[in-house]
Structures are given as C-alpha cells and as structure tokens.
Design a protein around this nucleic acid. Structure first.
Lengths: 328, 328
DNA sequence: ATGAAAGCGCTAACAG
DNA sequence: CTGTTAGCGCTTTCAT
C-alpha cells in the first residue's frame, strides 16, 4: 500500500504538503501541487479514508433505523433521507430492526462507539427515555415518529389530527362499525393515529369498538387475510382506517372475492398516497404525507448539529391531508 | 474521551490486557477480566471503533449499489442483502445512483479508499470492463445483473430464458402485436430479457416489432401513462411483457379506464411476483425471482472472499418461473 | 509556502 | 497469562 509518506518522499516534499494537496488546502504553491499530483497518479496513490476518519474522529456516516426496508412507506422515506445525506457529503447505513429490541440497542452501541456521526430514528420499539439513556450526548433525530421531543429533535406529521379528520368523515356518513388497523401499535406514530381515531368517535359522543382494532397488519397479504375474516360470513364492519394503502389494497381485493361492494358495504381509507391507491378498483381514499420536505429539513438540521450548532430540541410538525377518492 | 490507556492505568494493567478483555481474547484470567470490566463500566468507557477499523484495515462495512430504493424489486433485494450482511457482522451502506455515472464512480472511489470491505452491484450503467478498471483488486460481486462474469462474481436469474418462456406463451396464444417494457435498457439484466423476447419471436420465425419496445418504464405511473397512449384510440397492441408487476398494474388500470379488456383484448405479464399482482383485477401473470436464496448465497460468498478465500470468478444462475394468472 | 514533530486509540508481535 | 513496544496513515499545530 502506497501511503502519504511514500508520496512525500517520492516527490521531495513533506507529508504535510502532500496532506495539504489532498485536502485542497490553499497554502501550497501551484508548482508543488502539480508535482505532487503527478507522483500520486504515477504511483496510483489512494488516500486511506479509515485513517482520515480516525484522525478526525468523524465517520461522515449517518445511521438510519427502520423496521423493514421492503415496505413502501419506509423505502420511500429512506430513499429521500439517503439521497439528501449524500448531497451533504454523508453516507448512510440502513439498519433494519424487524422490531427486535436487541438489534435496535446494538445500533445505539455502534453510535456511542463513534461509528456514526448521527442517528435518524424512523421507528422504535423503545420509549423516548430509554432511547435517550442509550444514546446520551449523541446526535439523534426522530423522523415521523411522534415522540414528545423532550430529549431529541422530532420531525413528524400531524398523524392524530389527520386520522381524526378521516375518521370523522366516515362517521359523518353514518358509519358506526368502524375498524382500525395498525402495524405496530407500540410505536408513537401508530398510537397517535389511534388517538385520532378514538377522538373522532368521542367528538360525536360515540365509543370505538375495541374488537375492531387490528394490530400487526402491514402488508397486502395481511389486508387480504384480514378482509377474508371480516367479509366472509356476515359483514361485521362498515368502515376501516387501514393504516397503509397496501393494506387497503389487500382489503379491497378480499372484498371483491367475497362479493362485498366498496364503498357501498364498507368504506376503506389508506395512508401515504402511494400510487397503488390509483390502480385498485375502486381507487383508494388516503392520507398524504410530506416525506420529501421532511427529509430535506431533517437532513439540513442534522448536518448543522454535527457541525456544532447548539440548540434545544425542536419539534416540527407537517400537515398531512385526507384525499377522498372512491373507496370511502 | 476515556481511552483504553485510561482504563489500563485505572485498573493497574497494561493496554494489551484491556484490549484482550474488549475482544474476548481467551488468554486473560477471570479476575483480571472482571476487574477491568468493572473499571470500564465505572468510567463509562466505550471503545472507539474508528481506531479499531483503522488499525485492522477493515471497515466491517459493505456497499450496495442500486438505482433507486423506492422500487419494490430493489427494496426487497436490499432488505435481504442488508439483513444477511448484518447476520455476518457487516453493516451496509446503500448507495442510490439514480442511474448517474458520476455517482457510481464516486462509490468505486470510496471502495478503493478502503471505506468498504466489498461492494455489491445490483445494477450499473457501466460496462463490465469499466467497472473492473475502477475497482481493481477490490472485492466486488454482481447481484442479478447479467454480466458475463469475467472480472467478478455474478449471481443472477435466468432472465433470458424465462422471458423467452413468457413471450412464447403469449405467441402461442396467437398474439403477434407484442410489446416489451424496460426500465433501463443499458443494464445487462434488461438486455438479457430483451434477448429472450426476441428469441421467442425468432423461434416461430417472427420478427419483433421495434416500435413496441418501450424504455424507461418502471413505475405504476409510467404504466398508466404508457397504457393511456397505447389503449386510447385504436388498440395498437395485443400483449405486453411489462418489466415489473408495478408497471403491469399501471397498464391494467389504464386498460380499465379505456374500456380495454385484459386479457381478452390485451395480455399482460409482469415480473417479480410481488403481492401487488394479487390485488389488481385481473390478477397479474408474472415471473418469480429467487431473491432470498440469491442474497444468502451471495453474502456467504462475499464474506468468504473478505476473509481471504481465493478462487476464480464464479457465476451462479437461479431459475425464475413463469406464473400464469389471469392477465394473460 | 513548507517542514518537523506529535499523536489520534487501538492491535499484535514478541518477550517474558 | 501479562507487559513492552512499535506502529497503522493521516492531520494539525507550531516553527521557520
């Protein structure tokens, strides 16, 4: 391996000068610079970034914590975050937890061990306190997880409010047997949605039906299976807040197989305004998110923090909108 | 920052001993070990992995090159690869190229600069030679890109053969005006598919219709737009190999809007056997892949290579199957 | 504008 | 089983 020292020797300058050439430092004469560059090319020199990272105590790398990449919402989220980080000169390591607390804790350990300059949390099964405990003094930002924001920055959607709006819409159509699907109800985001769902009932003096709360429903297949149990014999349900457009698509598929008319017999609302909501029949009423904006703001913020800008934790809330299509 | 030296001093042993404790080296007495551990906890010591990586010249990190994460095929692929790498003790950095050659080359530079122990290529806009040129001596494996495998290992599907099968199926139904969609025709994978498409024609003494080759078609929206142009006035087409189930779903949506019956007026075949192929009406005929197996084999292989197992480039081909549903 | 020198935190021979 | 020693390749004062 040819090192900075070899290049220095070979071009008759000192290591410092070579280092200055590599990092484009201004204090180096044009002649020396071109001489050094020539030698570097001749000997096929490549700087060792591991040494640089070690020396500077900066990995130029940000970790992203998600449950599972093969999920339209998370893959979209990571797409934007990762691309924005790249633009700011940071690589991203994607960690899938599959909702396993141990894996999640290991990532916090790596963060403490200086492997990452910061961590972006998009979902967690731990409490805000436990996360703070595991990551003290480290830079950590939550993206669309509805934490209070006492210990770290939070960028999120108004999940509670917009779920309430969608639920109220269904209630105002006279629907009472109303169901709610969540992916992982222990996450703050999903709890916020449920809160909105319950609140919409409360506003009309109604109580939600606890037997129509379904957890761990996240994919098309889950939607189909849930639909089959719901639609089979007699209709146990008149409306469903589906948690994602994919679940909604599965429910609609199941309804078709079971001769249930959507929305006449049962209204369905998805989440995320994914293009899949356009290809089902009927098209899916859904809730839009603000992933590109959120990602952009979040990455700017986190880079500032890495560069030493100090400020108390902030919480920024984006407004999702209910989009009324044909499934409700 | 408390270092290994501090812990050594504080617990009355040498740095080496502390190092041995950290890495669970056997040659250290139980008493010394517990004494050192106690001091480490007391002083909240965390090892600096940047130093370790530098010292060992190993980043314990593998880069994955993909065009775009927000794509059901790639997000599934990365899900498995990333999880398998994690199990083997490697982190993964996901690099989206968005088909930009410059970004791709920068990743090769990082690879040369020791930022990654290896690189997994799932798609590239460069030739096998140029890639080899950019990454000489480095460990690099192609995953489902149909390179020849002269310079690096290749794990891929029998894209050509299975596309030929699906195309032959359509031709045997008497369809002649047959279209083909690709995402990025410069990639070897897509070229292989096209070759299969053409071959199926040739076998029946037919010529494929060049005006029915559509490139840069990859999403639901693309499928809808293409369908709208194809189905609008008079039917210019009787069958389409759609390139992905998402494109197929978009085409079906467009067909519904334009009063075209699938498959009576036009047959459609997708790719990947994604669950979306179950929720459209009709359900989509498609081609299965072998992502979990491929990922598992590939990661085992790459880890062996990192650990110094030498062997000439291998090429392993998996068999995808044509699944005949209701859209064809 | 350039060089000398110190050192980042850790591992790994080697010696005992 | 434990300690000594010698760096890994680079950046960064501090001189000059």
């Amino acid at each position: 391996m040819v090192t900075i020292y070899d290049i220095a020797r070979l071009s008759g300058v000192s290591k410092s000068t070579v280092s200055r050439v590599i990092s484009n430092h201004p204090y180096v004469s044009t002649e020396t610079k071109s001489k050094v560059i020539k030698v570097m090319q001749e000997y096929n020199y490549v700087p060792n970034s591991l040494a640089k990272q070690f020396r500077q105590k900066k990995s130029k790398c940000i970790a992203i914590l998600i449950p599972d990449l093969n999920h339209p919402y998370f893959s979209q989220l990571v797409k934007y975050i990762s691309a924005d980080c790249y633009k700011s000169g940071y690589k991203t390591v994607v960690h899938q937890t599959f909702l396993n607390k141990e894996i999640e804790r290991e990532v916090y350990t790596q963060l403490r061990e200086y492997e990452y300059d910061a961590l972006i949390l998009t979902s967690s099964t731990l409490s805000e306190e436990e996360i703070a405990e595991n990551t003290r003094n480290k830079i950590i930002v939550a993206c669309n997880e509805d934490y209070r924001g006492d210990y770290f920055d939070v960028f999120c959607l108004n999940e509670e409010e917009v779920t309430m709006k969608a639920t109220s819409h269904l209630i105002s159509k006279g629907i009472t047997k109303l169901g709610f699907c969540s992916d992982n109800i222990s996450s703050p985001l999903q709890k916020a949605r449920l809160k909105g769902f319950i609140l919409a009932h409360a506003k009309k003096g109604l109580k939600h039906n606890k037997s129509l709360l379904f957890n761990e429903i996240s994919s098309i297949e889950d939607g189909i299976m849930l639909g089959n149990s719901l639609f089979k014999d007699n209709l146990k349900i008149e409306g469903i807040i589906a948690g994602s457009d994919f679940v909604a698509a599965g429910l609609i598929r199941s309804a078709v197989s079971n001769n249930i008319q959507i929305p006449q017999h049962c209204s369905i609302v998805g989440f995320d305004n994914h293009p899949i909501s356009l290809v089902t029949n009927p098209q899916i009423s859904t809730i839009s998110n603000h992933i590109p904006d959120m990602s952009n703001d979040l990455v700017n913020h986190i880079v500032n923090k890495i560069n030493g800008v100090k400020q108390p934790p902030i919480k920024k809330v984006y407004k999702g909108e209910f989009i009324n299509r044909n499934s409700s």
